[in-house]
Amino acid sequence: MKNHTFFWFILPSLFAMTLFIALPIISVAIQSFHIEHEAIMIEVENCGPFGCKQELQVDVEETVKLKDARPLGQFNGFGTYTNRNHLAFTEIGEAWQSSTGLFDFMSKAYNLPFYRALAFTLTYTFVVTPLVIIFGFMIALGVNTLPKAIKGPTIFISLLPMIVTPLIGALILFWMIDANGIIGSTLQWAFDDPNLSLKASPTLTWMMLMVYGVWHSAPFAFIVFYAGLQTVPADTMEAAMIDGASRWERTRYVVLPHLMPLTIFISLIQLMDNFRVLEPIISFSAQASATSLSFIIYNDLVGNESQFFGSAGATSVLTILGVGILLIPVLIRTWRDFNQKVV
């Protein structure tokens, strides 16, 4: 295809992506170096029945004017990045100095909002992703052996947790594990503990969020693996059987290697999607025990009183760096494959 034809075909799509994906990334970076204006104070005389006093008051009019003139706020350099709510260098340094051991240091760092969110996001990503792959594979193997007539309905039901809106899916589970909901009360009965509440304990909340994550994403891995199982080469399979390979050996040495590229594909997609976990935390109202990077940005933007663009910007930039680190192995690999193909 000629260069200029290519250009005209891709232009609308490229334009949309530049304007709403590339530029916002730059805009986020600029925002992260700025901070909200301080309120302008004026001294006013406040006279009451007991005489007059000089008082400091916020000059609302001037503050609004300043905000309108320079909406970005004032320049703050890396100030937002290093403050307590983000990388918190001072606090981390102090914690390092005063800690008795690694565990003590970790628990101190966990009290800082950014590290708290990072801890949950990473745990969620690296626990849910492998579990999704394992469960997806097991379900695919199971469904593959079913009689044809019930395969269709099984796939239909399996698709539900994935297709349904994450916020809604998480809510449905949340209502069921409520102390008065069906799972919640069953657990209370099973453990004979009327005060057992999955919401009250941070550990149980983390577990519930991850159970949701696996429930939501396992169908995706299942469908991809299931499609892969249909294309397992019959010749190799038969050869393995003639050589006397057992069922387990065939799965291990024929099916698994055949599905390896699919596993890489699923883990790539899952890493990207799990790293941005946000909806289940909102549905579970879990912010007291678990926050994610996406959640603290969301909280800065949709806060109750005012919005903190500088703070949200700094967390966003750090999150984007995190995504970059996650993607580097994939990009290098694809790069190598492509260059081999060309040569």
């Binding site: 290519f6 891709i10 490229l14 992506m17 709403f20 994906i21 590339a22 530029l23 916002p24 990334i25 730059i26 805009s27 986020v28 925002q31 909406p71 970005l72 990207m272 790293f275 941005r276 946000l278 990077l293 996406s294 940005i297 969301y298 800065d300 933007l301 919005q307 663009f309 949200a312 910007g313 966003s316 930039v317 999150t319 984007i320 995504v323 970059g324 996650l326 993607l327 994939v330 990009l331 694809t334 790069w335 492509f338 060309v342």
Partner: peptide, 27 residues
């Protein structure tokens, strides 16, 4: 080659958490 680069760029864009982009739009 540039078509491949564009696809790679799209993959990177696909990985961006949406909320990070939103914080760029709002202001």
């Amino acid at each position: 080659k540039y078509a491949f680069y564009l696809l790679m760029l799209a993959l990177v864009f696909r990985a961006m958490p949406h909320i990070t982009l939103v914080s760029g739009y709002l202001l």
